[in-house]
Write a protein that binds this DNA or RNA. Structure first.
Length: 482
RNA sequence: GGCCCGUUGGUCAAGCGGUUAAGACAUCGGCCUCUCACGCCGGUAACACGAGUUCAACUCUCGUACGGGUCACCA
């Protein structure tokens, strides 16, 4: 049996972190941590066509941002290396040959033409395409003869003809497949390189992976994997197959179709921990009603039994809600640190950060939105004087003009321009006029922002913009209204 | 098409034979309020369908429909 819980995440270096993959990584990570086991990173880079420059670094970067630190990997090393699949290619053929020796696999010399021919024949007969076992019963002499002639060959696994192979998936339960459905799959290609399936089994075994966490697309080929483990008399790992993350009822989330990757979400102003929290909930549910969990808390509450079988549709609105909760729980310092890159894009004016944090922290859903919400700080947008008319606040253009003239005088007389002094000054004007707050504050806010909705009210905007700018914008409004 | 798997409100989902079928997001209404938002309170909304099994079925079985996956010398 396995001495220790060991899980792995085995991404290909594609140049981005897919949300579904990240969730798979998360579950693998959680299972390892929960059981005081190891979480291994293995890069499956044997698909040269897909290789992207810098892709490996991006995997490291994204996993670290998500907080999914690994115990062994290409960068860290470990006792089971190498951890990059392309560096392991030399070790597979010997294993396949062992199987050949044990008569559990055989060399197949069929060429592409023959394979195509039988496939077409089978298709025409409406049979499922499957290798016909032509080379299965070649005699020693025949094989040696072909080898001597340097005929190219592949190594195929000898599948049982009868019976069923079944296994118990931790998520899906019992899954069984008739052996007659199974093809004598190729283990080693004619170039001597292993097929993905074969390399995977060997790697997982050599790395002593005890729990295989992967997408449900492997569910129906898992019996084949198990037959391989059995052929070697190796321990079969536990399987945790995860249903895909969808964009809608019928389509998977995919980068190719423009759906967000993990990196995209971060650029949109979502916090890595909020994304991790959300995807943990996509296809898994905790026991109680709580939904907000830090990574450490997830380790604590995570349980494979909570993983759901059916596919889950990614809902960015829910992510946004969770992100908002995280933002509201941040310290002011943290908020400012996270928001600054986005604030810098929105404006360059020097403003009171304390006030800014105060008006923004409670209302921010994601940082990207700040750019649009705060664009007026940099430059007063052109606006229509209709904005001064608010039914709810009972303001009119004429009334606003009168009020703004008075406000302008008040503002001009404020000395130190702090939130307190502006508050006191404008409020005493309200009192003096004997009107409701809104009658004064609404026109003030519109004059300062040129917008119908803003973060913060007239007071905060006034202080944020400062004396000179406020006066200038008030004068502009008065001019527009006159 | 064969095989494997799935199906509870718009979305994520709890539920493991007897429940007023949770909760969250979204949505709607109200309160709060110098706008919007936040926050608080409340509402609308679901067991895909059809047969069984059972005293009783969202829960078990079998079909149907719909959806997904898989059938490579791709990974």
């Amino acid at each position: 049996m396995f001495k220790k819980v060991r899980t792995r995440f085995a991404p290909s270096p594609t140049g981005y972190m897919h949300i579904g993959n990240l969730r798979t990584a998360l579950y693998a990570f959680l299972i390892a941590r929960k059981n005081k086991g190891d979480f291994i990173l293995r890069i499956e880079d044997t698909d040269c066509k897909r290789k992207v420059e810098g892709a490996e670094d991006l995997i490291y970067k994204s996993l670290k941002e998500a907080g999914l630190f690994w115990d062994e990997g290409p960068d860290l090393g470990g006792n089971y290396g190498p951890y990059v699949q392309s560096q392991r290619m030399h070790l597979f053929k010997d294993y396949a040959l062992k199987l050949v020796e044990a008569k559990k696999a055989y060399r197949c010399f069929c060429n592409k033409e023959r394979l195509d021919r039988i496939k077409n024949l089978q298709m025409a007969a409406k049979e499922p395409p499957k290798y016909d076992g032509h080379c299965k019963h070649l005699t020693e002499e025949e094989i040696n003869e072909k080898l001597k002639n340097n005929e190219p060959y592949v190594i195929r696994q000898r599948m049982p003809q009868i019976g069923v192979t079944e296994f118990c998936d931790e998520v899906f339960g019992k899954v069984s497949v008739k052996n007659s459905e199974l093809e004598d799959q190729i283990l080693i290609k004619s170039d001597g390189m292993p097929t993905y399936n074969f390399a995977n089994v060997i790697d997982d075994h050599l790395m002593e992976i005890s729990h295989v966490v992967r997408g449900s697309e492997y569910l129906s080929s898992t019996p084949k994997y198990n037959l391989l483990y059995e052929a070697f008399s190796w321990d079969i790992p536990k399987y945790i197959h995860c249903s895909p993350v969808m964009k809608n009822k019928t389509q998977k989330l995919s980068k190719r179709h423009g759906d967000e990757t993990f990196e995209d979400l971060l650029n949109l102003g979502y916090l890595p921990q909020a994304v991790v929290n959300y995807i943990a909930l996509l296809g898994w549910s905790p026991k109680g009603e709580r939904e907000i969990f830090s990574l450490d808390e997830l380790i604590d509450v995570f349980d494979v039994s909570g993983i759901c079988k059916s596919p889950a549709i990614f809902d960015i609105k829910k992510l946004a809600a969770i992100n908002a909760k995280y933002i509201r729980n941040m310290s002011d310092e943290e908020f400012l640190k996270r928001a600054t890159p986005f604030l810098n894009k929105a404006f360059s004016r020097d403003v009171d950060e304390k006030i800014l944090v105060e008006i923004l922290k409670q209302r921010t859903e994601n940082f990207k939105d700040l750019e649009e919400q705060l664009d007026f700080i940099e430059k007063l947008p052109s606006y229509d004087t209709d904005l001064f008319v608010s039914k709810k606040m009972k303001t009119t253009k004429e009334g606003s003009l009168e009020v703004l003239k008075k406000v302008l005088e008040v503002v001009k007389n404020i000395k130190d321009f702090s939130l307190n002094s502006v508050h006191d000054a404008v409020c005493s004007l309200v009192e003096e006029l004997g009107v409701k707050n809104g009658v004064v504050f609404w026109p003030l806010r519109v004059a300062l922002s040129g917008k119908q909705f803003t973060p913060g009210g007239g007071l905060e905007l006034c202080v944020l913009l400062g004396r000179e700018e406020s006066i200038s914008r008030l004068e502009k409004a008065i001019e527009k209204l006159s």
